[in-house]
Design a protein around this nucleic acid. Structure first.
Length: 498
RNA sequence: GGCGCUAUGGUGCAACGGUUAGCACGCGGCCCUUUCAAGGCCGAAAUACGGGUUCGAUUCCCGUUAGCGCUACCA
């Protein structure tokens, strides 16, 4: 009852799928709110659906949260291990009259298509009255005993008042008021004896003293039911904050057919967690101005439920990529090193000395490469030649820059000139190459571009002389020599070019 | 079908009764240039529609339309 206490929030995923971007965003908002308020964040796995529950998915969800940088202070708790609490609450509601025993046959969910099929028959009046009030709520004691005697499975439903309104406060959508007549007598305890989501979520949130429930707006319509349970249980409902949903580019709910939707896939693709966080934070929330590149510390500092939007947002991958480039390029290079190391290890080209004796070299190389990267995987992709000697000559680069038949001769001379350099630095390399270009009567660009392909295999790469410095004389000279046989020999040589 | 929520360029957000409706992504162009990025500059592009309220509506109200959500013994 003490409102001055620190807020307590929770993220409560159900292990029926991977951690998707919508869940990740909800988790992030909870986390930002908790950190901003100095409160606590709990993690609770809602695994009460024995049918579609997939225990093996829990680890992936935890891993996804960790990658995202969303840390929880308490948990993870598993609802499946708290069933006694839930069933006790159901029995208490039953005993107190807020609940009643129901002996109806469970109507399996037919799905939207089937439901639509049933329409059209014109039995609107029948549909209008469909299962709002369950017939079992008025069963006499004798009737009830008879059903029990027959051995008919019993479920416990909530006895929803047939008049009046239920109200609650939503930090995003404002004060809410719903006609009780619109709320059906929902199930609290299944005939199997297992609690439903509505029941267990409320019982656990009360027990865990959750003060703010930040979750997807898909729960907005069901919140009145939960408020009813809170009150029936003698508890004050918390503050709700329903956040808008994240949609796919076709404006429908994000799902597998929209491509990557699990946060794990974004990690694998080479997105930086902070970039992902920044992007996600701005989907449905705004600090109030035009800020875009907002680092995590500032996100925490500025986060507020008041800034949460009420409109669904479309997940825009190009924007996410833009955020990634920002985080690849703007922070101090040291922050990037661990991610690049992980990527190089993954690619099998990591050298331990880059973390010790050659750490400065490594940082320098990464710094040189990163302005052109979009994903962390680029470091082992197009920039592979900076870290490994086995790289290939990109076909497009060969075709574009190795066309001139004078190249082999000039590159051989360049290798000799470079090899003879007493000092290996940017200006010396520059002078050597330009001197040769002048002597040969060709534009420096011709040699520069051809050399770039020879030493890194790519047309798209950092400026040549800086690259030479990073690679070192031995490598550059060796690679020049190694490239000679391939220069001026088109990949498709021998074929008639039409 | 019922109930609810939402509605600013293609996308994400600003403007919370008075702005030439701003920023970013993306797109097009130019500059820079040693490839390609980055960066700089310029450009095209929006208040869903119709009524009100008001001196004045993107903003407040109503209706329409559209999208989404809920309507399960799923969560």
């Amino acid at each position: 009852m003490n409102s001055s206490q620190k807020p307590r929030v929770r993220f409560a995923p159900s292990p029926t799928g991977y951690l998707h971007v919508g869940g990740a965003r909800t988790a992030l908002f909870n986390w930002l709110f908790a950190r901003h308020e100095g409160g606590a964040m709990l993690l609770r796995i809602e695994d009460t659906d024995v049918e579609r529950n997939r225990p093996e998915l829990v680890d992936g969800i935890l891993a996804g949260l960790k990658w995202l940088g969303v840390e929880w202070d308490e948990g993870p708790f598993f609802q499946s291990q708290r069933l006694a609490l839930h069933t006790a609450a159901a029995e208490r509601l039953l005993a107190g009259g807020a609940g009643f025993s129901c002996y109806c046959k469970p109507a399996a969910y037919a799905g939207a298509d089937a439901a639509e099929e049933q329409e059209g028959e014109g039995d609107d009046e029948v549909k209008l009255q469909k299962n709002i009030a369950c017939l079992c709520r008025d069963l006499s004691e004798a009737e009830r005993a008879a059903k029990e005697k027959e051995g008919i499975p019993r479920a416990i439903r909530f006895r929803v008042p047939r008049d009046g309104v239920t109200t609650f406060e939503d930090a995003v959508f404002g004060p809410r008021e719903v006609q009780n007549a619109e709320i059906e007598d929902f199930v609290l305890l299944r005939s199997s004896g297992l609690p439903t989501y509505q029941l267990s979520v409320v019982v656990d949130d009360i027990d865990m003293r959750i003060s703010h429930i930040i979750r997807g707006a898909d729960h907005l319509s069901n919140t009145p039911k939960q408020v009813l349970i809170y009150r029936a249980l003698g508890a004050e409902p918390p503050i709700f904050a329903h956040v808008p949903l994240i949609l796919g580019s076709d404006r429908t709910r994000l799902s597998k057919r929209h491509g990557a939707t699990s946060v794990g896939s974004y990690a694998d693709e080479g997105f930086l967690p902070e970039a992902f966080r920044n992007f996600l934070a701005l989907l449905g929330w705004s600090p109030g101005d035009d800020s875009e590149y907002v680092r995590t510390a500032e996100l925490i500092e500025r986060f507020s439920l008041a800034g949460v939007s009420r409109t669904n947002a479309v997940f825009d991958r190009p924007k996410l990529e833009w955020f990634n480039t920002q985080y690849l390029q703007k922070p101090p290079v040291e922050e990037l090193l661990p991610y690049v190391e992980a990527e190089l290890r993954r690619a099998g080209i990591w050298q331990d000395r880059w973390a010790s004796s050659d750490r400065a070299w490594f940082a320098h190389a990464v710094d040189l490469i990163r302005p052109r990267t979009r994903l962390v995987t680029d470091f082992s992709g197009w920039a592979r030649a900076f870290f490994a000697d086995d790289f290939e000559y990109e076909a497009a680069a060969r075709e574009k820059f190795w066309k001139d038949e004078r190249l082999p001769g000039m590159l051989a001379k360049l290798a000799d000139a470079l090899d003879a350099l007493p000092d290996w630095n940017h200006d010396a390399c520059d002078a050597a190459l330009r001197g040769l270009a002048t002597a040969e009567g060709v534009k420096a660009g011709l040699l520069i571009n051809a050399t770039r392909v020879a030493i890194v295999g790519r047309a798209v790469a950092p400026p040549l002389f800086a690259t030479m410095v990073v690679l070192g004389k031995d490598r550059v000279v060796a690679r020049l020599g190694r490239a000679l046989p391939f220069v001026a020999v088109q990949p498709s040589a021998g074929q008639s070019a039409t």
